[in-house]
């Protein structure tokens, strides 16, 4: 009983010839299919828009993973093995607190950071500043400027999940 995989990301070195890279994470949908289907109400949208999971209330049925159109939810199939020295002591109960085996987890826009007014870790780590993050409701924010002035799109727009994760072309004149 073998299992074969044909992955979408199988190159040793990037960028590979003929490939176009689309980084993906939880799309933080305004109409999130994953929260509707949860039988225990263990996942919901916070008032600031972030979709979170109560890791203590999740029973691990994985219905949300079937519902998510973006593959953004991940299950702890085995015992998590994060070494103690790698655990970030700056924790949020709905964010980076260590998860147990048998529960679903997801990107929370680094809730433990953004709730303190800091940027998500991916934003901070990106060497070329390709990621932007901000308050969509603030008309003066950088993210608002980009949405209003750049060519943007969302993934699987036809599903009308209304993601709050946008893709934009930063360079003028390029498609």
């Amino acid at each position: 009983m073998r299992v074969r995989v044909r992955g979408y990301y199988e190159h040793k070195e990037v960028p590979a010839e003929g490939k176009f890279y689309v980084p993906i994470a939880c799309q933080q949908c305004e109409d999130a299919p994953c929260t509707t289907v949860c039988p225990t109400g263990a996942t919901w949208q916070e008032s600031d828009g972030i979709i979170v999971i109560d890791y203590d209330w999740c029973i691990g049925c994985r219905y949300c993973m079937a519902a998510c159109p973006y593959g953004a939810r991940h299950f702890n199939w085995g015992e998590p093995n994060l070494p103690a020295e790698d655990v970030n002591p700056n924790m949020h109960i709905l964010g980076n607190k260590p998860r147990t085996r048998g529960v679903v987890e997801k990107c929370t826009f680094c809730i433990q950071r953004v709730r303190e007014g800091r940027m998500p870790a991916c934003h901070e780590a990106c060497p070329v500043g390709a990621r932007k993050f901000g308050n969509l409701l603030d008309p003066d924010s950088e993210i608002r400027y980009l949405l209003d002035h750049k060519r943007t799109f969302v993934l699987k727009a036809e599903l009308e999940t209304h993601p709050k994760f946008f893709y934009f072309w930063g360079t003028e004149g390029r498609s």
Binding site: C38, P39, G41, C58, I59, C61, R101, G102
Partner: peptide
């Protein structure tokens, strides 16, 4: 048997849990 945490199946039940 498909549940990741069967010991918490009561989260589904009325009164003691929060069925959605």
């Amino acid at each position: 048997v498909d549940l990741g945490r069967p010991e918490f199946v009561w989260h589904l039940m009325p009164i003691v849990g929060t069925p959605n």
